[in-house]
Nucleic acid binder design. Structure first.
Length: 508
RNA sequence: GGUCCGUUCGUCUAGUGGCCCAGGACGUCAGGUUUUCAUCCUGAAGAUCAGGGGUUCGACUCCCCUACGGACUACCA
């Protein structure tokens, strides 16, 4: 098993949009594969036809593509171990169930879900737990209790049946987990899981093991919610005689809600007002829209960086990581054992870091996209300069509008608090004089305006406090925004003077 | 209820027996820079290492118990 090629898979089921915890699982698989020169596979686990959601599969692919998580094999890229969608592999599983049935590792069971439900309720009423296992299978309707003739008769009569795994008694099942070490469970506590459903589809457990084996998966990196079923999976490898090539397991810690405890869920996003999905998702059933990081103005690099550090760290103080740096430094040994609470503040900080280091042209393009949705047109070169001026104060791409709307819309009202504090009797005249002076400045750019105005104020013996806030008020409408010279330069001479005139005429 | 996993500042975490009366980052607070706001810079507060027992000359680090939290417990994945 040494020197086996690293082959990992990310195997979501298309029951809805990929949620941020799933993204992290996909990311860790990708980083691990690339680090070791291995192969990253995208397999779609759609054995439950009742939960299939149209659009979910393409959403998963688009989201991972947006984030820069690439696959070497998978539904969308093909490969030598396909098909990569379990519904397309339906025929394959039959042969393997038969193998188990033939060598006594599985049996046929006729109990209906309703019958079992009644049994569960009955046991519950007595504060006991019903389990379909070695203790109960002798009293139920299955090929272990029925005669061969009865079984055949039932099957021929079209009676629905499932195939269950026959969990052996009294053995210790050991799961060697790369993150948690050895986990030991007694087989007596494990139940006879359904491997093959009455609808002719395998369950997750069967399909998963067969596919991992057939696709030569070397490492299974998945969420901690799978740890309880790992012993069953180990037993399945044993039953098939595939112990030698059984993959190594690594169960990742869960992503927790920001407040309180518990697994992060779709609900939390709505409740706390932050996205739990990489991209916006339109639910065809409820017609509700869930927000996404992409549409909220986050950069994929920031989302990746933030997620990578949630449950893993390099052991150094380095926090800003590009994807290729992550690949270089990633290791399973440094994944932590305990769940990590999702902290939006930290995510924002990462985004800000990425935003301020982005080229102004890239930012301008993103901003332009937002503006065009608002039906606002602007010269690209103007947007590039504007982004340069505003980027320090922005966290998300959306903030460019919040921080710079007044470059597009003249003030329609003036902050009363600023008027009260900074608008004196002599202010209008001072502004008129300033406007006259601005008229003479050439070129009307930031450094020129800045030094010219400074000299002008000094010559006229006007204090900064006497005029700057009032000037800002007429240009912006409040006391916010970047330096005055920057605002004036971007607004242009004509508009700057016009706003001064309008302000004087409006403010009493 | 049962099984399994986990537990270091509010949050993410460093720490693999002495370097730790515990380090970094986010957040918070204070000061500085700035004509405003933000950025930025400096600093501060913030964890009796869940609690209790051991082992050891010495424990955040090893062992046991307890508490708390979580996951799982479907013909869902």
């Amino acid at each position: 098993m040494k020197n086996r090629q690293v082959r990992v898979r990310f195997a979501p089921s298309p029951t809805g949009p990929l949620h941020i915890g799933g993204v992290r699982t996909a990311l860790y698989n990708y980083l691990f594969a690339k680090k070791l020169g291995g192969v990253n596979i995208l397999r779609i686990e759609d054995t439950d036809q009742t939960r299939f959601v149209p659009g979910a599969e393409s959403y998963i692919i688009d989201a991972l593509t947006w984030l820069g998580i690439k696959f070497d094999e998978g539904v969308h890229v093909g490969g030598n171990y396909g098909p990569y969608r379990q519904s397309d592999r339906k025929e394959i599983y039959k042969e393997y169930v038969d193998q188990l049935l033939n060598n006594g590792w599985a049996y046929i069971a006729f109990d209906t879900p309703e019958e079992l439900d009644v049994l569960r309720k009955k046991h519950e009423a007595q504060k006991k737990t019903f389990q379909y296992d070695s203790s109960s299978r002798g009293q139920l309707r299955n090929s272990l209790t029925l005669s061969k003739e009865e079984v055949n008769a039932l099957m021929n009569s079209g009676q629905h049946y499932v195939v269950r795994f026959k969990m052996p008694e009294n053995i210790e099942v050991k799961v060697n987990d790369l993150i948690r070490g050895e986990v030991v469970v007694s087989s007596n506590l494990l139940d006879d899981k359904v491997l093959f459903k009455s609808d002719g589809m395998p369950t997750y457990h069967l399909a998963n093991i067969v596919d991992d084996h057939l696709m030569k998966i070397s490492h299974v990196i998945r969420g901690e919610e799978w740890l309880p079923s790992a012993p069953l999976h180990v037993m399945l490898y044993k039953a098939f005689g595939w112990e030698d090539t059984m993959p190594q397991f690594a169960h990742l810690p869960l992503l927790l809600k920001p407040d309180g405890n518990g697994k992060l869920s779709k609900r939390d996003g709505d409740r706390l007002g932050f996205p739990v999905f990489p991209m916006e998702w339109f639910d065809p059933k409820t017609t509700l829209i869930s927000s996404g990081y992409r549409e909220s103005g986050y950069f994929p690099e920031a989302v990746i960086n933030f997620l990578a550090l949630l449950g893993w760290n390099p052991g150094t103080e380095k926090e800003l990581y590009s994807m290729s740096e992550l690949i270089q430094d990633f290791s399973i040994e440094r994944i932590s054992k305990s769940g990590a609470k999702f902290d939006l503040e930290k995510a924002k900080w990462f985004n800000h870091e990425y935003l301020i280091h982005k080229d102004n042209k890239v930012l301008a393009e993103a901003f332009n996209l937002q503006l065009s949705k608002m039906k606002i047109r602007a010269k690209f070169s103007f947007l590039v300069s504007l982004c340069g001026v505003l980027k320090d104060r922005c966290i998300l791409v959306h903030d460019f509008w919040k921080e710079g709307y007044f470059f597009f819309l003249p003030p329609d009202e003036y902050d009363p608090a600023v008027i009260k504090k900074k608008w004196k009797a002599e202010t209008p005249q001072l502004l008129i004089n300033l406007a006259d002076f601005l008229q003479t400045i050439e070129p009307f750019d930031e450094p020129t305006i800045n030094s010219a105005v400074n000299v002008y104020l000094e010559e006229k013996q006007i204090g900064m406090g006497q005029i700057m806030n009032a000037w800002r008020l007429v240009l912006v409408g409040s006391n916010a925004g970047p330096a005055m010279a920057q605002i004036a330069a971007l607004l242009g001479k004509e508009e700057t003077i016009r706003r001064i005139e309008v302000g004087i005429a409006t403010i009493k």
